[in-house]
């Protein structure tokens, strides 16, 4: 059973005060997230990531389509007891202390009173806030609030966690800790679905990603598959500064750095290039496939939409 199954989910808002007009925030989204994976939902600001999460959380209602989470409909309270959610730039009841807030959320999630206090202490420790549990949230910094947000999302030991821009407001150390936490959650068998526009985070963490732009799904797949499918090129490095003329004939781009030469050429020319190096008695150091970064793939997927937008 998939953890998340989105079937043609659409959302159209009405905008404008006097002259109301429809604005499609999400166009027929079909997506499946398997249990136990870390799934990245990528897109630039305003792409429809938060709308999708709000639809899944039942905060806004779909104009069309449906979704199932852990095999249940999105308005099923039994499903909501098994998921955690961190909204983008979370804001909490600032008259409460961190411990009181988590206790309240524990009550709403049905966490038994006998274990709630221990659970609250454990998550505060887990998100790096063990000493400020009794401080009112109005005294917390943005980064600390983000950590409280993560704590409330995992407090009730959910099977599936949704994070909307989880690294937002965190310093580099905090981002590293959140990445570690997500990996721990995966090791505990939980599914993590997170939205971000920071591609390096997604590349480092995700089993699979989906790219959304202007409310439309542009690509989905394993990070390795998406990045390797882009170029189909190899990189050859050999010792010396000599670049055989025949190498250029293969369409290789050569760069001399110190006492090594780095050449990038099409994958199907790899054997011919190695043969040239052997013939010229040049010592080959390495042959590696050129993998495009997720950023390359992301930009490639966004470009057609930009040009279409530019024409219209």
């Amino acid at each position: 059973m998939p953890a998340i199954e989105i079937l043609g989910l659409e959302k159209t808002y009405t905008v404008g005060f006097w002259r109301k007009r429809p604005k499609q925030a999400l166009k027929s989204l079909h997506l499946t997230v398997e249990e136990g994976e870390i799934f990245g939902f990528l897109g630039p600001n305003g792409a429809g990531k938060t709308t999708t999460l709000k639809l899944l959380m039942g905060l806004v209602f779909p104009s069309a389509g449906s979704a199932r989470i852990l095999g249940m409909t999105i308005d099923d309270p039994r499903m909501k007891a098994q998921i955690g959610f961190l909204p983008e730039q979370p804001y909490f009841y600032d008259y409460l202390t961190a411990r009181e807030l988590l206790d309240y959320y524990g009550q709403l999630s049905g966490v038994d009173a006998s274990i709630r206090s221990r659970r609250v202490d454990a998550v505060l420790h887990r998100v790096g806030l063990p000493d400020v549990g009794d401080v009112q949230l109005r005294k917390f910094s943005k980064g600390m609030l983000q950590r409280v947000g993560i704590a409330q999302a995992i407090l009730h030991d959910p099977k599936l966690v949704f994070f909307d821009e989880p690294m937002s407001g965190l310093d580099p150390m905090g981002r590293r800790e959140v990445r570690d936490l997500m990996e721990q959650l995966k090791h505990e068998g939980k599914t993590v679905f997170f939205s971000t526009h920071i591609l390096s985070d997604a590349e480092a963490l995700c089993d699979r990603v989906a790219i959304i732009h202007q409310g439309e799904l542009r690509g989905v797949g394993a990070v390795a598959d998406l990045t390797s499918s882009v170029h189909g090129q190899v990189e050859l490095v050999w010792q010396g500064t000599a670049v055989p003329a025949s190498m250029r004939g293969l369409g290789a781009e050569c760069h001399v750095t110190g006492d090594t030469v780095r050449a990038v050429l099409p994958e199907d020319k790899q054997d011919a290039a190695i043969e040239i190096l052997r013939r010229e008695r040049l010592r080959l150091i390495s042959v590696t496939p050129v993998r495009a970064s997720l950023e390359d793939y992301f930009v490639q997927k966004l470009q057609p939409a930009v040009s279409v937008g530019a024409r219209s």
Binding site: M57, L59, K80, P87, Q89
Partner: peptide, 14 residues
């Protein structure tokens, strides 16, 4: 307005 509702209604609260 403050979005405090998001973390309440994403729980089993009708």
């Amino acid at each position: 307005e403050k979005r405090t509702l998001y973390t309440v209604l994403s729980r089993p609260v009708r």
